[in-house]
Design a protein around this nucleic acid. Structure first.
Length: 424
RNA sequence: GGAGAAGUGGCUGAGUGGCCGAAAGCGCUUCUUUGCUAAAGAAGUGAACCUCAAAAGGGUUCCGCGGGUUCGAAUCCCGCCUUCUCCGCCA
């Protein structure tokens, strides 16, 4: 959530800032609910203060004395009205909180203004996407692909979008995960292995609830959600905690499977590894003070770019426009690799600064110079998502002989120069 | 899964209906004295929200969480969560 003081003091600024985001919010309604809530709280507190004062007098009277008994009668009505006012204040507060939670984070001024994905700005490109990839095929058209990424048996066992990776392909996935974690470690991120289910409090703190409720798998019996990204458990590690200023910034990384229902997004362009219900990802998470988060976002993006460069995959960096950045995001870069077989750019990482938006929901703070708690900033980025990186490797590294060359940086874990089968 | 016990401030821990936002100790901060480390003494020591232009000040809430009883709840009742012990089961 945003800073309520900013909304009260500069409603026009907030209105203008979020006007370019894709989310609809009624600022005036929120302000009105805030005013109602505050006056109700004041009324209730005054009633309660009066009751407490009267109670104090009463406690001094001898129990059972006539004055005492007379006072009890009087107190009953005072207590009843205080209770009523408190209930009203609580209802007004809840109404406000619900509306307030629907206000998205404000985009940073550096974010390009635009309505949707067509207006994202390509800020840099690495490698040569126009180079000849004479042998490239869409990965799902490689003859031996289905024998190593088995969708049919995945359907039988779980459903569409839950493939089995078999044999050398399973090892290649494992090699990628290890490579990504090792890259993160060398860049100073401490590894954690988090729970892959979270409760509703955690999902709300990072902003998945209520915004993306329909996208998560839920165990209603236990009230647990399968995580859509490691961002959720990892960021919640420090929920409701206060850092010492000198601890910041904190860098963490985590490998987890990620689960997404992808309701409504099935259709064209989702063949093969392009979009799955379960996929593996290494996530990078940072907690910073309220000054350095934009700088830390650039470092985070650089870290991820370095990993892509070692894999030798052409990629481009998109500065996401106001109309395409997420609900919780102040600034976002998407990194896309070029898959030469499909001749498509595949998103493999999203690096984002949430400023204080998640941290305020999550109660993540730090003590400033005066000892007072300040809201921290949180950031995260994929480093990286496995299936689409794998897709690009399969397509771009396909050899004339029908096999795929394994990138050199994976040799330590893979110990195999090629995967697949020679052409008949 | 069954039976039992317990959850109080940064920590230990007292408190069984009003005088308790909560004793005492430890820790921490500042100050004083002595002064190499230390010791002794004094004062202070949480958060959220409301009020206030701001600061100061004032107010409300918070004793695992949520309800209830009562004029009044850390204290009584109900539900839940967590931890511990024993039994069962299991990787």
């Amino acid at each position: 959530m945003i800073d309520i003081k900013l909304l009260r003091e500069q409603p026009e600024f907030v209105r203008a800032a979020i006007a370019n985001k894709k989310f609809k919010t009624d600022i005036d309604a929120v302000l009105e609910l805030d005013a109602t809530r505050r006056s109700k709280i004041t009324d209730a507190e005054q009633a309660r203060a009066a009751q407490k004062a009267a109670n104090k007098e009463m406690a001094a009277l001898p129990k059972g004395s006539p004055e005492f008994i007379a006072k009890v009668g009087e107190m009953k009505s005072i207590a009843a009205s205080a209770k009523e006012l408190e209930a009203e204040a609580k209802a007004a507060d809840e109404a406000f909180q619900e509306a307030f939670l629907s206000i998205p984070n404000l985009p940073d001024p550096s974010v390009p203004i635009g309505k949707g994905e067509d207006e994202n700005v390509v800020s840099s490109t690495w490698g040569d996407a126009d180079a000849e990839f004479p042998n490239a095929l869409p990965h799902f058209d490689i003859p031996w692909f289905e024998s190593r990424v088995d969708f049919a048996r995945g359907v039988k066992t779980a459903g569409a979008g839950f493939p089995f990776y078999v044999g050398e392909m399973s090892r290649l996935v494992r090699a990628l995960i290890n490579f990504f974690l090792e890259e993160a470690r060398q860049n100073g991120y401490e590894e954690v292995l988090p729970p892959i289910v979270v409760n509703a409090e955690s999902a709300t703190a990072t902003g998945q609830l209520p915004d993306k409720e329909g996208q998560m798998y839920v165990d209603e019996k236990e009230g647990l959600y399968l995580i859509p990204t490691a961002e959720v458990p990892v960021t919640n590690f420090y929920r409701d905690e206060i850092f010492d200023a000198e601890q910041l910034p904190v860098y963490r990384c985590a490998y987890t499977p990620c689960f997404r229902r992808e309701a409504g997004s099935w259709g064209a362009h989702v063949r093969g590894l392009n979009r799955l219900h379960q996929f593996d990802k290494v996530e990078l998470v940072k907690w910073t003070d309220n000054k350095s988060s934009m700088e830390e976002l650039e470092k985070l993006r650089d870290n991820v770019e370095g990993t892509l460069q070692k894999l030798g995959l052409p990629y481009r960096v998109l500065r996401m426009c106001t109309g395409d950045i997420g609900f919780t995001h102040a600034k976002q870069y998407d990194l896309e690799v070029f898959a030469a077989g499909q001749k498509r750019w595949l998103e493999v990482s999203s690096c984002s600064n949430f400023t204080d938006f998640q941290a305020r929901r999550a109660g993540i703070r730090y003590r400033g110079a005066d000892g007072k708690p300040l809201t921290a900033h949180t950031l995260n980025g994929s480093g990286l998502a496995v299936p689409r990186v794998l897709a690009a490797i399969l397509e771009n590294n396909l050899q004339a002989d029908g096999r795929v060359k394994v990138p050199d940086c994976l040799q330590y874990w893979m110990q195999q120069e090629f995967i697949g089968e020679l052409k008949a």
